[in-house]
Design a protein around this nucleic acid. Sequence first.
DNA 1: TTGTACGCGTTATCAA
DNA 2: TTGATAACGCGTACAA
Lengths: 328, 328
Amino acid sequence: MATIKDVAREARVSVATVSRVLNKHDNISLKTKLVVENAIEKLNYEPNMLGRNLRRSKSGMILALMPSISNPFYSQIVEGIEDIATKNNYTVLISGTDSNMDKENLYFNLLKQKLIDGVILMNTLQEPEFINTLAKKYAIIQCSEYSEEVDIPFISIDNKKASYDAIKFLIKLGHKDIALINSDEEFLYARRRKEGYIEALKESGISIREEFMGQVGLGFDNGRRMVKRLLKLEKPPTAIFAVSDILAIGAIKEIHEAKLRVPEDIAVIGFDNIEFANMSTPSLTTIAQPMYQIGCEATKMLLKRIDNIDTKIDNLILDYNLIIREST
Amino acid sequence: MATIKDVAREARVSVATVSRVLNKHDNISLKTKLVVENAIEKLNYEPNMLGRNLRRSKSGMILALMPSISNPFYSQIVEGIEDIATKNNYTVLISGTDSNMDKENLYFNLLKQKLIDGVILMNTLQEPEFINTLAKKYAIIQCSEYSEEVDIPFISIDNKKASYDAIKFLIKLGHKDIALINSDEEFLYARRRKEGYIEALKESGISIREEFMGQVGLGFDNGRRMVKRLLKLEKPPTAIFAVSDILAIGAIKEIHEAKLRVPEDIAVIGFDNIEFANMSTPSLTTIAQPMYQIGCEATKMLLKRIDNIDTKIDNLILDYNLIIREST
DNA sequence: TTGTACGCGTTATCAA
DNA sequence: TTGATAACGCGTACAA
């Protein structure tokens, strides 16, 4: 394995000169530049990043931390992150924490160990103070889901308004009995979407029915269970708004199980527009967040932060889209 | 940021001693060990991995390279990889190449740059010679999909036999007109599964019909298109074996579109047992590979290889399972 | 059992 | 425009 020394010897110059060529400094004569480049080619030299990283005290790696990498919700965000990162010569480390604190801490340690230069945080159960302390020394950005008590920049959509729009759409279709399958309200987005749900109903003079609102985990089965409960009601809903497509697909499964039809008997709206939303039967009406763009912008924010940890960075709220398909 | 020097000063010992404590050498007195550990705690010291990595000429990182990280097929494999890697103090870099050669090469370069210690290769379009050359100098393992012309260890299942079993199962249910939605036969697994399909039919005295076999891409829409074609036949099939769950789900979607029922009019079997196979309506009969275990074993093989590039490592063929659900 | 001193491969400072 | 040399933080051979 050739090192910079070998190249220098081969080109009969100093290692400093080789380094300058490598890093495209401009104060170098064309002649020696060519000589060096020839030597590099001849020796098949590749810079050893371990040396460079130590010297620069940078790893050139950023971490995208999310609860689960298999959750299709994050796929496009990750694409955005990777595109911007690659363009800026960073490598992206993608990791799922299973919402497990120990695992999360393992990854946060990479910051202290200098193995990553920054973190894009999708959704964490850490205490706000913990993140705040960390963010004083390291570059961290909140992406998609965030906490208001955490004092670092975030990027997201207006969850309340999105939810409001979804419900308004159902009302326009003639629905009055609309259920909400929400996820745990410890999450900000869940609280916001509930607010939008309530506001839309109130505005249309529809009374809020407690038995129509459920707080469940994010899994497919939770969607099913919630519908099972709803169908046992004396007057079941004619429409359901689920805060994730997976929950919505679970809901549809259970509705079919009960020999009812979607959307004829019960309409269903999801959230996220994951790839499968278009594949399910019936295809799913849902709210699409600009995932790819969210990933891009989050990364740009992070890189700014890495370059200068003291930059003031503004939060970003992006637009969303209601995508109407067969389930409504 | 405290360094090993600071710790040494604080503990009034040499950096060598601190290093020994850090690396759990045994030739060190309990007393100094305690002193050093106190200093580490007091200064909140974390080893700088950039220094350690350079010195050891290792990055402690392995790469899991697959066509697409959003393909749920790989999720559990990745889990296995991460578990074993973490247990051995490695960090896993997960990357999707979109079957794009440029992107792939970018990642292979990480090997030369010393940023990764080895690669678990899921599915690549690279020429066998390219991989072979690379594998002489670097630790590489083939996982799940592999090439027979590549001379590095692989881990997989018996795709021919799995396919054979699926078809035999359909025949046992009374089906005679069985279609095959295969993926591109440039892939070994596609060729193998076709062999199994043909062998099962022949063995049961069912003649092979060319118009029942299709080679398509892996996307959902390809499953739909293929079914569209099959339904136009004078005598359409009564059962379909799709070589991936996504294709199978696409097929079902199109069957429903044609106002036919699954499995009453047409039975469908998939392959992979992705999470959604159990969520779709009807739930999908499919072949389950031991993904998690595949990931674990692949990683063990790779780590062996990293420790000693010259070890002879045996290939591994694991078992699979036919999971019977509603679609048959 | 402990310390001294060198080197891993690179970049950056300073002087020429 | 170029070169000599000192770091970056760590691990280890060798000596004590």
